[in-house]
Computed example of a mutant assay.
Amino acid sequence: MGLVGVTLCAALAVVVVLGITFAVALRVGRQAVIDVTWGLGFVAIALTAFVVTGGQADPLRRWLALLLTAAWGLRLATHIRLRSRGKGEDPRYEAMLARASGNPKAYALLHIYLPQGVIMWFVSLPVQVAMLVGGGLPWVMWLGVAVWAVGFVFESVGDLQLTRFRDDPSNKGKVLDTGLWRYTRHPNYFGDACVWTGLFLVAASAWPGVLTILSPAVMVWNLYGGTGKKLLEKDIGDRRPEYADYVRRTSGFFPLPPKRTR
């Protein structure tokens, strides 16, 4: 199967996953279930592309693309599921649906599911292409695995440290500034960016994988200036004035030694 066929199959996988998610969301009355599906959708895309391409390309690159995507997606889905257990609707979706004009279900499909589905499909293009290419530069592929590993550690450890911090009642109202959070205000977002940069390098190690450069760029932009860091910090800053001091001394994205403040 060629690239067009693979991308169409990947798009179909996105539609199926988000369709099931929407049905579940209507049943439980919470659109926030799509946050759990975010990671699972990438796993479904990688598995679909792996299956439909058969053995027509480099087996090692194919398995790496599948396993690295699955490890990231399953961990993220599990983490978000545990974090949201027992909670109500996400305030972001409540605010969006409050602005809905007309049918709220149609509004949710158009403004929540459609954008996330398009981004999911576009960001995963390196994984789709990696299932088709052969040869290339092995050292670039292994560099991609190393960058992915750095990102996976940052994201996993950062999420674990934040969970433990929030679970301790004595930390209520405080700002986490230890561990990885001492060096970057968003170790999980930085890790996510590294994961998708690494997967891009796995694909870019052989032509035409390098042409998917815009996919990780979109993910990094979204994490840094879109709905990730920028939106989250605005919300925290509005609710917790002490966060401003943490912002002054801690890198916003890339891990750096903390600044000295008076």
Rank of each mutant, 00 (worst) to 15 (best):
residue 79 H to F: 15
residue 44 A to Y: 10
residue 117 G to H: 04
residue 31 Q to T: 11
residue 58 D to V: 06
residue 54 G to H: 08
residue 140 V to N: 09
residue 102 G to S: 09
residue 97 L to W: 00
residue 104 P to K: 09
residue 109 L to D: 06
residue 59 P to I: 07
residue 111 H to R: 15
residue 41 G to N: 13
residue 35 D to T: 02
residue 113 Y to L: 10
residue 64 L to E: 00
residue 51 V to K: 07
residue 138 P to W: 06
residue 81 R to K: 08
residue 41 G to M: 10
residue 100 A to S: 14
residue 88 G to S: 13
residue 133 V to E: 00
residue 135 G to S: 05
residue 79 H to W: 11
residue 95 A to L: 10
residue 99 R to K: 15
residue 96 M to E: 11
residue 120 M to F: 05
residue 107 Y to Q: 03
residue 100 A to W: 05
residue 58 D to W: 06
residue 29 G to E: 06
residue 68 L to G: 02
residue 93 Y to Q: 06
residue 46 A to Q: 07
residue 121 W to L: 15
residue 127 V to S: 05
residue 71 A to R: 06
residue 69 T to P: 01
residue 103 N to A: 12
residue 55 G to W: 10
residue 30 R to W: 02
residue 127 V to W: 07
residue 25 A to C: 06
residue 84 S to L: 14
residue 26 L to S: 04
residue 38 W to K: 01
residue 87 K to E: 13
residue 117 G to Q: 08
residue 50 F to V: 02
residue 142 W to L: 13
residue 39 G to Y: 09
residue 96 M to S: 12
residue 122 F to M: 07
residue 45 I to W: 06
residue 128 Q to I: 13
residue 64 L to M: 10
residue 115 P to A: 04
residue 97 L to P: 03
residue 104 P to E: 08
residue 56 Q to P: 00
residue 128 Q to F: 07
residue 104 P to N: 09
residue 93 Y to A: 09
residue 39 G to L: 10
residue 57 A to L: 03
residue 70 A to K: 02
residue 83 R to V: 13
residue 95 A to T: 03
residue 110 L to K: 15
residue 76 L to Y: 07
residue 143 L to G: 13
residue 131 M to Y: 04
residue 145 V to D: 01
residue 82 L to F: 08
residue 106 A to M: 12
residue 58 D to T: 08
residue 45 I to D: 07
residue 111 H to C: 04
residue 102 G to R: 15
residue 125 L to W: 14
residue 95 A to Y: 01
residue 27 R to I: 09
residue 66 L to Q: 07
residue 135 G to D: 01
residue 131 M to G: 05
residue 119 I to H: 05
residue 137 L to H: 12
residue 43 V to S: 01
residue 134 G to T: 14
residue 128 Q to V: 14
residue 76 L to C: 07
residue 130 A to S: 09
residue 24 V to H: 06
residue 37 T to V: 14
residue 78 T to M: 04
residue 116 Q to Y: 01
residue 77 A to R: 00
residue 97 L to C: 07
residue 128 Q to S: 14
residue 25 A to D: 12
residue 93 Y to M: 08
residue 103 N to V: 08
residue 105 K to C: 00
residue 60 L to I: 13
residue 61 R to E: 01
residue 146 A to P: 00
residue 123 V to E: 04
residue 78 T to S: 12
residue 29 G to Y: 09
residue 96 M to D: 03
residue 140 V to T: 12
residue 29 G to M: 06
residue 109 L to A: 15
residue 129 V to P: 09
residue 113 Y to R: 08
residue 29 G to F: 07
residue 134 G to R: 14
residue 35 D to E: 11
residue 136 G to L: 09
residue 49 A to G: 12
residue 96 M to Y: 06
